[in-house]
Simulated assay, not measured.
Amino acid sequence: MSWDSREGELTPSAAPPWLAPLVENPGAVKNAYRRRVPAEVLAALTAANTTAAVTGTRRDAAVLALFSGPADGDPGALPDDADLLVTVRAATLRHHAGQAAFPGGAADPDDRSPVHTALREATEETGLAAGRVRPLVTLDKMFIPPSGFHVVPVLAYSPDPGPVTVVDKSETAHVARVPVRAFVNPENRIMVYRGENTRRTAGPAFLLNEMLVWGFTGQVISAMLDVAGWAQPWETDKLYELSDAMALLDAEDSYGEAQR
């Protein structure tokens, strides 16, 4: 069985009704993701992906997009108490240091599948009890330079994942179950770009009480909100360079009631 196999590990029937739009059409998330990525960034990603494949530097990885909340509800209607598990990577890491991310990482040789990788990494990073988690579907692979990872997001659900916390401070700086309504709230949404003269490459981001969620993770969350029908109109002209956006985290009362 190859690492790409998901046989016997996915239980889409375990999804609550409010996650139905994502579970029933997981391919739409990548399409929504690509629509949000500027054309020149998409071209650069495609070129980097091709180069990594030719040179053999592309690596398999998986992340866990774990939603928690009630087991009932109306199809597509977001419950007030639904949340999403997010971590902040330690500032000392080689790749994506200090960045908010889904728990996850590179596949180990003994990993059986993306589901196995995502659950193993999430347990190592957050202390998550994997037995409480129901993997629902896998989203399409997405390439992330400069790390060279070919990432499979694993969409999962738990009515109650139990306590989560930082397990290893050398890898993870912060762990949080963030209310999904905090991502939906238009007041928390901004556009972020990195470096000078790259405003056209800005992507969606979320400015929360304890973290700035941007880059790959911000793009995936934005795409999921769109596909699920949870997104609300927001000011896409709220544009910040990355360092300026990070500085807002330290500015008292700079972005209102951000965790609502």
Rank of each mutant, 00 (worst) to 15 (best):
W3A: 13
D4P: 07
R6E: 14
S13Y: 04
A15H: 06
P17M: 01
W18E: 01
P21I: 14
L22K: 08
V23L: 14
V23E: 03
E24H: 07
N25Q: 13
G27T: 01
A32H: 05
A39H: 12
E40Q: 08
L42V: 09
A47R: 02
A47Y: 01
A48M: 02
N49D: 12
V54Y: 15
T57M: 04
R58Q: 07
S68Y: 13
G69K: 00
P70H: 08
A71M: 13
D80E: 12
D83C: 06
L84A: 01
R89K: 11
A91R: 04
T92A: 12
H95Q: 04
A97H: 02
P103I: 07
A106K: 06
A106I: 09
A107E: 10
A107P: 05
D110W: 04
D110Q: 02
D111Q: 03
P114D: 11
A118C: 03
E121Y: 08
T123C: 09
T126N: 00
L128V: 00
A129M: 09
A130F: 07
R132S: 15
L136C: 05
L139M: 11
D140L: 13
F143C: 02
I144K: 07
P145S: 02
S147Q: 09
H150A: 08
L155E: 06
S158F: 11
P159A: 15
D160K: 02
P163F: 14
T165D: 06
V167T: 15
V167P: 03
D168C: 09
E171I: 03
T172D: 08
V175H: 08
V178C: 10
V178K: 09
V178N: 08
V180H: 10
R181L: 12
F183T: 09
F183G: 06
V184T: 08
R189F: 00
Y193F: 04
E196S: 15
E196I: 06
T198R: 06
T201Y: 02
T201Q: 12
L207Y: 11
L207D: 05
V213E: 04
V213Y: 00
W214M: 05
G215H: 06
T217N: 14
V220T: 08
S222D: 13
A223Q: 04
M224S: 09
Q232P: 05
D237G: 10
K238I: 14
Y240H: 11
L242I: 00
S243H: 04
D244M: 03
M246F: 01
A247C: 05
D250N: 15
D250R: 06
S254A: 14
Y255D: 13
E257L: 10
R260D: 14
